[in-house]
């Protein structure tokens, strides 16, 4: 398990990285935290001829707030974002999502941008960003493209990132006053989920649901959004019965994955349960905010 040979560059600026990416062409690949890429190199499942290391570009790893927008550099470490009070207060769903990503040593190196770019269908971050309707800022020698989350993740290990492009930043609207939760079922905690659900809930002054978002991950090549469910919750007081009734509207036909060890039928059973738990937990947290 030793990687095939490759050349290595460690640019100091984004421009330098983009230059390299263009000049080295399609055989080049960027490395972020390496937590998914290095295993693939070791297994020789990935065989880039050139590796461009983004770890020495400080401008890619800042988290800052501008007005109501949070800008998260793609190279922000998962551990850093998890520990960030800005993230916890303004983007609680991201905080809860990251709790489920790997383990302390993998989070210490793994990046937010890497996770989104890798686009594992079971990964938590694409679901989180879809729930936030975040924008992905892609940079290349040709300039910048801003892609909304629902057009960014295209399929299993497939994103809108074009050759020559780097995911530079994720822009998310701050959502300080809502409850959020990410609930998942995996066979071993810290591993990829069999089904996950991400929920955001904000309440009106009277305690009814003002707005909610529900995403289910790990059941199809891309995370799935279930607006029908959350629309039905709007204006309602949360209860187990209300949530269960709304979840009747979940279109289980959208679930796709069917493996020998985890069947489609099973995912269709647990998907709604995860969703119910996420919604109820997010609601509880939203209530807590109001108090």
């Amino acid at each position: 398990m030793k990687p095939a040979p490759f050349e290595y560059f460690a640019p100091r600026t984004l421009d330098e990285a983009l230059d390299l990416l263009e000049s080295e062409g399609s055989e080049a690949r960027v490395i972020a935290g390496g937590q998914s890429l290095v295993p693939m190199l070791a297994l020789r499942l990935a065989r880039p001829e050139v590796l461009i290391d983004l770890n020495r570009i400080p401008e890619l790893s800042r988290i800052r707030q501008e007005g109501s927008t949070i800008h998260i550099g793609a190279m922000t470490r998962q551990a850093h974002a998890l520990a960030s009070s800005l993230v916890f207060e303004q983007l609680p769903l991201l905080h809860y999502g990251l709790q489920n990503v790997g383990h302390p040593p993998t989070r210490a190196r793994g990046t937010l941008g890497g996770s989104l770019s890798h686009a594992d269908p079971a990964a938590e971050t694409p679901a989180v960003m879809l729930a936030y309707k975040a924008d992905m800022v892609l940079k290349s020698k040709q300039g910048e493209r801003i892609i909304p989350a629902d057009e960014f993740t295209l399929g299993t290990f497939d994103t809108a990132i074009e050759p020559g492009e780097i995911l530079a930043e994720i822009r998310v609207q701050a959502k300080p006053n809502e409850g959020a939760a990410l609930v998942e079922l995996s066979r071993r905690k810290g591993d990829f989920a069999m089904a996950s659900a991400a929920a955001r809930v904000s309440l009106a002054a009277d305690g009814t649901c003002a707005e909610a978002h529900l995403i289910v991950g790990a059941v199809a090549p891309v995370p799935l959004r279930f607006d029908a469910v959350t629309d039905a919750l709007k204006g309602q007081k949360f209860s187990e019965a209300v949530v269960r009734e709304a979840l009747e509207l979940m279109d289980l036909e959208l679930f796709e994955f069917d493996n020998e060890d985890i069947s489609l039928e099973y995912r269709r059973k647990i998907g709604p349960v995860m969703a119910e738990r996420a919604l109820l937990q997010a609601f509880k947290r939203a209530e807590g905010m109001q108090k």
Binding site: I31, G34, Q35, V38, P39, A42, P105, T106, A108
Partner: peptide, 29 residues
């Protein structure tokens, strides 16, 4: 394992825990 799962290679890099098998030697500069 050399693929990041077992943790036997865990070391501390700049004060943070890291998988020694998932970092390249060149990245240690």
């Amino acid at each position: 394992c050399e693929h990041g799962v077992c943790g036997a290679c865990t070391i501390i890099v700049n004060g943070e825990p890291a998988r020694g098998c998932l970092m390249l030697g060149v990245q240690a500069e």
